[in-house]
């Protein structure tokens, strides 16, 4: 089941992501971003995955989410490193530590669907409903 859905936005991509916990929400959001960018269907095994641990801080929970997505996007846009799995280890209102598994992008193997160019603060929200956490994020494409 998809953990995110597309919402309408005239020029860019806006998504709503859900997660059982805040940690899940952060993990699901970063994976949604990569799912929008790259077609990973038919590929479930990562060959010789690399691991990275990332620590990101922010002014509050919302800012932490945006800074986390920014760092993750830079791994791809700047270093051509694809995140295939994200395990949030620790999350406070102002910081997150995650363990990432991924691999170097391979033009032949990984089909790019959309180029996400930036993560924006516009229309950003993180809310808790009775059963789950939800976030809305707008990406510049």
């Amino acid at each position: 089941m998809k953990k995110y859905k597309l919402l309408d936005h005239t020029a860019d991509i806006r998504i709503e992501v859900s997660g059982k916990t805040r940690k899940d929400l952060f993990g699901n959001t970063v994976m949604a971003m990569f799912d929008l960018m790259i077609d990973m269907s038919g590929e479930d095994k990562i060959k010789g995955p690399d691991e990275k641990t990332l620590k990101v801080t922010g002014a509050d929970l919302e800012d932490t989410l945006i800074n986390f997505l920014r760092e993750a996007l830079y791994l791809f846009n700047g270093q051509r490193w694809l995140i295939r799995h994200c395990e949030p280890l620790e999350l406070t209102g102002k910081s997150i530590i995650v363990r990432l598994k991924g691999e170097q992008y391979n033009r032949q193997k990984n089909i790019l669907k959309t180029e996400i160019k930036a993560v924006t603060y516009h229309g950003l929200s993180i809310n808790k409903s009775s059963k789950s956490w939800r976030a809305k994020v707008v990406f510049d494409v």
């Binding site: 993560v119 516009h122 950003l124 510049d140």
Partner: peptide, 26 residues
């Protein structure tokens, strides 16, 4: 993109110090 993103992050970080009330963090 990187220049904009870097400065946006920096300005959000220091937003409280400038005392400018923003209707949208962007």
């Amino acid at each position: 993109y990187q220049i904009c993103d870097d400065y946006l992050a920096l300005m959000v970080k220091h937003a409280q110090k400038t005392g400018i009330d923003l209707p949208d963090r962007q």
